[in-house]
C-alpha cells in the first residue's frame, strides 16, 4: 500500500494548502489578489482531487475523493506541517505558497517521466500550475521584500517563521523507493536555487533553523489543523451517507 499512502500524503498537502489559501477569498489586499488567490487554491484543490481519486482506486476499497478528504481526522491526515500553517498575513501566505510551489515544480517535472500513466497525467497539468505559482508568489516576495520598511520586516518575519518547516519538504515519506514517484531529497538543490534567485532580488536572506520540525507524515500536526478540518468536514459529517 506504499503507493496509496504516498498519494494520500501528496493529496493532503494539496488540499490543506488549497483550503488555507481559499480562506482569503473576499478578504485579499486588493481585488486582483481576490482573483489570483482563489485561482491558486483551485489549482491545488484540483490536484488534490485527482490524487485522492487515484489513491482510492489504488486502495481498491471503494473510497472516493470525499471519503478520503472528509472522513479522516487530524491524526490520519499526512500533510506537511508547512501547508497547514495559518495564513497570518499576506507575506506569510505568499512565502508558504512559494516554498511549496518551488518544491512541487521540480517534483512534477520529474514525475513526467514516471512509469505510472496516471501520475504522468496528474503531473502534466500540475507542472504548469506550479510554474505560475512560483512566478506569481515570487513576484510578491520580491515586491514585499524590496517594498517599504514594513513590508520588508513582514517578509523577514515570514522567512524566520517558516524556516523550521522547510526540511520536511525533502523527507522521503511513504513514497520512498517507489518507481512511480520522484525522490524528494534529490530536489533540494533546485528548490534552493529557485529561492535564492528570488530572495536575491527581494533583498532577503534564507534562514536555516537548527531545530527543524517534522511529523506531518505521521499525523503529528500543529493544533491548527484540527480546527481547520473540523470546519471543513462539519456539513459532510453532519449528514452521513448524504450526497451533495
Amino acid at each position: 500500500m506504499a503507493l496509496f499512502d504516498a498519494l494520500l500524503e501528496l493529496a493532503d498537502d494539496h488540499l490543506v494548502l488549497g483550503h488555507r489559501v481559499s480562506e482569503w477569498c473576499g478578504h485579499a489586499p486588493m481585488l486582483e489578489e481576490d482573483l489570483a488567490m482563489p485561482n491558486m487554491a483551485l489549482d491545488v484543490i484540483g490536484t488534490a482531487r485527482n490524487l485522492y481519486d487515484y489513491a482510492g482506486k489504488v486502495e481498491g476499497k471503494g473510497r472516493d475523493e470525499d471519503d478520503l478528504a472528509y472522513l479522516r481526522g487530524e491524526r490520519e491526515y499526512r500533510n506537511l506541517l508547512l501547508v497547514e500553517r495559518p495564513n497570518e498575513d499576506f507575506a506569510h501566505t505568499m512565502l508558504r505558497q512559494l516554498y511549496f510551489a518551488a518544491f512541487m515544480h521540480p517534483y512534477w517535472t520529474a514525475a513526467l517521466e514516471s512509469p505510472d500513466e496516471t501520475v504522468r497525467g496528474i503531473a502534466g497539468k500540475a507542472v504548469k500550475e506550479m510554474a505560475y505559482h512560483i512566478r506569481h508568489t515570487g513576484e510578491w516576495v520580491i515586491r514585499l521584500g524590496d517594498g517599504t520598511e514594513e513590508s520588508a520586516r513582514r517578509m523577514r518575519d515570514a522567512v524566520t517563521a517558516l524556516a523550521i518547516y522547510v526540511d520536511e519538504l525533502f523527507e522521503e515519506g511513504a513514497g520512498e523507493g517507489l518507481d512511480a514517484l520522484p525522490d524528494r531529497a534529490a530536489l533540494r538543490p533546485e528548490w534552493e536555487a529557485t529561492i535564492k534567485r528570488i530572495f536575491d532580488e527581494a533583498g532577503l536572506e534564507q534562514v536555516t533553523s537548527p531545530f527543524p520540525q517534522s511529523g506531518g507524515r505521521d499525523g503529528r500536526h500543529g493544533e491548527g489543523l484540527g480546527h481547520m478540518l473540523a470546519e471543513m468536514q462539519s456539513v459532510h459529517r453532519a449528514h452521513p451517507g448524504a450526497t451533495w
Partner: peptide
Amino acid sequence: TRAPSLRRKAALLAKVQ
C-alpha cells in the same frame, strides 16, 4: 471552507472568484 464535497468546494470557489 465548509462546502460538503470537494466538487462543490471547487465550484463555489470558482463562482465567488
